[in-house]
Design a protein around this nucleic acid. Structure first.
Length: 555
RNA sequence: UGACCCAUGGUGUAAUUGGCAACACUACGGUUUUUGGUAUCGUCAUUCUAGGUUCGAGUCCUAGUGGGUCAACCA
């Protein structure tokens, strides 16, 4: 059943590497988050990609926290990140790993470099170093400390580690090439002094390696074969390889891909933080957020996210993927798996004139027409019902299939009814009266009546109030970051959340638990909120059904 | 006036590596339907431009155009 998909450019490279026996053992990838924030949809694509490729080639994937900057990193994030990855359905090889576990090894690598005359302690200030590096269009200048004797460098670096110097007073730099057109090769900083408490190593260290001297080396230590990262690290690759060569360590291979962008979503940790801190949303897991926890709370199934990542492919060009593609995968999974339920959003009383006053009939409804095994449920039917305001019009346009004067419709899982009369006050419909055909009961209909429309309904006596959190895109513009004259924060959609506390559900909703998802018949998919305690049940709108009909008489 | 990367429909990716531009989403129009859902059928492209190589170019070569990335003691 599995369809063979064309290999993307990275997979083709891996096939080549396997053919050439570049890596005799298995393929090994890694996902390297920095524990300084929550994972978002952009990370999800990287996760699916790294784990997916390893799986495809019978390899393994490590989870490694890139925790080399104690200023911003926290254990809370470590836990949340693991939860998100597990929820997405992936399993890393062995225990979670940490770059901080390699601090001793990394330190020894630095000593090795110094001894080889390939690294030096620089006393320049950060401004001076920036000055030396210069601009990309012209060569940089060498630091006055560049040619310190090896012994002096060794002594100074040891004392840096011992805490003898204040923050920022000295750094360790790799001696590469100050004239390189690649800024990252102009004697990059590899160690800095930071007398700060680290979330795992505590106060053991006061010098910390920079990204370029931690990430690639960690890859090598873990025998990572393919280190897949986004395009902006392309310029780091020569340095990545330089360290492998000079340190004579395992030759991991870095390959870059284009990060994926989605319309109506942003994936910058800083900007996401601004939304949280400015109370534009209700926390990191607000259903409008692009965080994995937000999407989860909104009701996006992990499978839909995985399918989306698989289908969207991988390339090197800039891209903005339409959110509709993700949404179609969400609908696809939910259509298959969500039980249907009837909920009236804006109730109007409907009385069936010829139905016995005190009778309550139990109707049998299919939970999911796409899945026989989902079974059936019982729905009470009676003389007094509610239907949705949207489903009745006094003066309907041409192709209106719903209830109107002179019209006949099917009540889903109930009877066919025909309009008799209605009451209006100040132009607003207050109630409707119909008659039913007692030989038109769902499943045993021999009335011969054809009803074009089918409506959902609830029985007045047994209906249960529920709260509907109706979400729209967080931004009113598909690309909120693409406007020079406008801040993304000013493009927040004022209608991104509408709360409907007056909706009435059929009684079976009472058994709903947080995380359960439903298709509200004819409307949308909803997930029970994580904070829903039972009465009323709180439902978060996941995504609307496609719905084609539009009232063309309105403007 | 540096270096590197990228360019296929409205969107994202394909094209057996030089052989009829395909798949999915979106939009629009049919069919089916006790969800205006699902399913199903159909419609929507001078492959950025100009040259060149070739029987044949989205693919190779040259030039141009457009877009992106790089100058944190962040990752």
């Amino acid at each position: 059943m599995e369809e063979e998909r064309a290999l993307n450019f990275i997979e083709q490279e891996i096939v080549e590497d396997i053919k050439n026996e570049r890596y005799p053992k298995h393929i090994h990838t890694r996902f390297p988050p920095e524990p300084n924030g929550f994972l978002h949809i952009g990370h999800a694509t990287a996760i699916c990609f790294n784990f997916g490729i390893a799986k495809k080639f019978n390899g393994k994937t490590n989870l490694r926290f890139d925790d080399t900057n104690p200023t911003t990193e926290k254990t809370d994030y470590v836990d949340a990140i693991q939860e998100d990855i597990k929820w997405l359905g992936f399993e890393w090889d062995g225990e979670p790993l940490f770059a901080s576990d390699y601090f001793d090894e990394l330190y020894n690598y630095a000593i090795k470099l110094i001894k080889a005359g390939l690294a030096y302690v620089d006393d320049s200030t950060s401004e001076e170093i920036a000055e030396q590096k210069g601009v990309p269009t012209e060569p940089g200048k060498e630091s006055p400390y560049r040619n310190r004797p090896i012994e002096e460098n060794l002594d100074l670096f040891t004392r840096m580690k011992a805490g003898e110097f204040p923050d920022g007073s000295k750094v360790l730099r790799a001696k590469v090439d100050m004239t390189s057109p690649n800024m990252h090769m102009r004697d990059p900083l590899i160690y800095r002094i930071k007398k700060e408490h680290h979330h795992r190593t505590g106060d053991e260290w006061c010098i910390y390696p920079m990204y370029d001297f931690a990430h690639g080396q960690s890859d090598s230590i873990e025998n990572i074969t393919h280190s897949l990262c986004s395009l902006e690290f392309k310029h780091h690759r020569p340095l990545y390889n330089w360290f492998i060569e000079k340190l004579e360590i395992f030759p991991s291979r870095q390959i870059e891909f284009a990060r994926r962008n989605l319309t109506y979503m942003i994936t910058s940790k800083r900007k996401l933080l601004k939304l949280v801190e400015g109370n534009y949303v209700d926390g990191w897991d607000d259903p409008r957020m692009s965080t994995i926890s937000g999407l989860r709370r909104k009701g996006y199934p992990a499978e839909a996210i995985r399918n989306f990542c698989e289908e969207v492919g991988m390339a090197k060009r800039d891209n903005v993927i339409e959110i509709e593609l993700l949404e179609s995968h969400v609908r696809d999974v939910l259509n298959r798996e969500a039980n249907r339920i009837m909920v009236v959003e804006d109730p109007i009383p409907l009385t069936i004139a010829n139905y016995p006053e005190d009778q309550v009939e139990i109707m049998i409804a299919q939970n999911n027409p796409e899945d026989e095994s989902a079974g059936v449920r019982e729905i009470p039917f009676s003389k007094y019902l509610y239907i949705d305001r949207e489903d009745f019009m006094v003066d309907p346009p041409k192709k209106y299939f719903r209830l109107a004067p002179g019209k006949t419709v099917r009540l889903k899982n109930g009877y066919i009814i025909e309009y008799l009369s209605h009451n209006e006050e100040d132009g607003e419909v207050k109630s409707i009266e119909c008659k039913y055909f007692d030989n038109s009961k769902s499943g045993e209909d021999n009335s011969g009546i054809k009803a074009k429309g089918t409506l959902h309904w609830v029985s007045k006596e047994q209906a249960v109030k529920v709260q509907l959190n109706n979400y729209e895109h967080l931004f009113s513009d598909p690309t909120p970051l693409a406007h020079e004259e406008k801040e993304f924060i000013d493009l927040v959609n004022p209608n991104s959340l509408t709360i409907n506390a007056e909706a009435l559900s059929e009684p079976s909703i009472s058994s709903a638990k947080p995380g359960d998802y439903y298709q509200i018949f004819r409307k949308a998919y909803y997930a029970v909120d994580t904070k829903s305690t039972g009465s009323p049940v709180i439902l978060n709108k996941t995504v609307a059904l496609k719905g084609a009909w539009k009232d063309k008489s309105k403007k």
